[in-house]
Amino acid sequence: MSQASCVPVLMYHHVSPSAGMITTSPANFEKQIRGLARAGYHSLTGDEFAGFLQGNAVPKRSILITFDDGYLDNYVYAHPILKKYGMHAVLFIITGLIGEGAARAHQGSSAELPSTPAHKEAKALMFSDLKDKVMLRWSEIELMQREGSFEFHSHTHTHERWDLIQSDAISKNTKMTADLADSRRVLKEKLGGVSDHLCWPQGYFDEDYIQLARDAGFKYLYTTDAYGQNIAGHDPAHIYRFAVRNRGFLWLAQRTWLAAHPYWGPLYNQWKLWKRARRKKA
């Protein structure tokens, strides 16, 4: 069996018919997942991806599919599609925003589907008393975990940018330490355990945060940086992910191929970083 030298990590947020930013429609998501499955891609678990970074062999066409935050639409639309094609994803949940109650309907069931608002409305609701309208419940998480479509890891407890709220580094670090501890505690209480995978809230991290995460028991730290490659031996404290667009499988196939290619991938990343730096100077 040929082995992967690089594993692209895909980043999703919403799968919903409500169009908007960081949202993939259910139709395009199904095209993407069906295309990956038919093309022979293997969707890794978090443990398999961690093993790859440590030097363990994984199939050549390996990817890691990730979702951030824990929106209800991940259960309503993404879960049944992943299950249908035997694919697996990692979901980083904001533990303080997950609700209680019975599991709601998802696509393919006979019951009426709950509303899944676009990102702008969801963001306004997720930190309010109405967060249950847009966020997952623990019962839904347990069902998704049991049926193998998703596994669940920490995205902190509050999703706060403490660096923007606190006036000094000591206060910022104290708040983040508590945030990480609360997230780990809730995951243990609700799911029976917590992993060493963490996704940074709002993509922000600094050297203090990296050390705090390590001290808390996290090793695999996921960024929103797109322009780098995850290869064996790569620093697990800086995992690259690229955002998936609301496009069909052809776009995703091209982007995934580029992310993993040993020659064209680094060139593409250098070009994109050069363009970004040029824009900042303008």
Results as ranks from 00 to 15, higher is better:
Ser2Ala: 11
Gln3Ile: 10
Ala4Cys: 04
Ala4Tyr: 00
Cys6Ala: 14
Tyr12Glu: 13
Tyr12Phe: 15
His13Val: 06
Ser16Ala: 10
Ser16Met: 07
Met21Asp: 12
Thr23Ser: 12
Thr23Cys: 12
Thr24Met: 11
Thr24Leu: 14
Pro26His: 03
Asn28Phe: 07
Gly35Gln: 08
Ala37Cys: 08
Ala37Trp: 03
Ser43Arg: 04
Leu44His: 02
Leu44Val: 00
Thr45Val: 10
Asp47Arg: 15
Ala50Asp: 08
Gly51Asn: 11
Asn56Glu: 15
Asn56Gln: 15
Val58Thr: 08
Arg61Trp: 08
Ile65Val: 15
Thr66Asn: 04
Thr66Cys: 09
Phe67Ile: 11
Asp69Lys: 12
Val76Arg: 02
His79Ser: 15
Pro80Ala: 00
Lys84Gly: 05
Met87His: 06
Met87Glu: 07
His88Met: 02
Ala89Ser: 15
Ala89Asp: 11
Ala89Gln: 13
Gly96Lys: 01
Gly99Ala: 12
Glu100Pro: 00
Gly101Cys: 04
Ala103Asn: 04
Ala103Arg: 15
Ser109Lys: 06
Glu112Asp: 10
Glu112Lys: 12
Leu113Gly: 05
Leu113Arg: 07
Ser115Gln: 14
Pro117Leu: 00
Ala118Ser: 07
Ala118Gln: 12
Lys123Gln: 13
Met126Val: 03
Phe127Ser: 15
Phe127Ala: 14
Phe127Thr: 14
Phe127Glu: 11
Asp129Cys: 08
Asp132Thr: 13
Val134Lys: 01
Met135His: 09
Leu136Gln: 08
Trp138Leu: 09
Glu140Trp: 10
Ile141Phe: 06
Met144Ile: 03
Arg146Asn: 10
Gly148His: 02
Gly148Ile: 02
Ser149Leu: 04
Phe152Val: 04
Thr156Phe: 08
His157Arg: 05
His157Gln: 08
Glu160Met: 15
Trp162Pro: 00
Asp163Arg: 02
Leu164Glu: 14
Ile165Cys: 05
Lys172Asp: 07
Thr174His: 13
Lys175Pro: 00
Ala178Asp: 15
Ala181Thr: 10
Ala181His: 12
Arg185Ile: 10
Leu187Gly: 06
Leu187Ser: 07
Lys190Ile: 01
Asp196Lys: 09
Asp196Glu: 12
Gln202Ser: 13
Tyr204Glu: 12
Tyr204Leu: 13
Phe205Lys: 08
Ile210Arg: 15
Gln211Asp: 12
Asp215Ser: 14
Ala216Leu: 09
Lys219Asp: 03
Tyr220Glu: 00
Thr224Asn: 09
Ala226Phe: 02
Ala226Gln: 12
Gln229Tyr: 13
Asn230Arg: 06
Ala232Val: 13
Ala232Ile: 12
Gly233Ile: 13
Pro236Trp: 03
His238Cys: 06
Tyr240His: 12
Tyr240Ser: 00
Arg247Gln: 14
Phe249Ala: 13
Ala253Leu: 07
Trp257Ile: 06
Leu258Asp: 02
Ala260His: 03
His261Ser: 07
Tyr263Met: 11
Pro266Gly: 03
Lys275Trp: 08
Ala282Tyr: 04
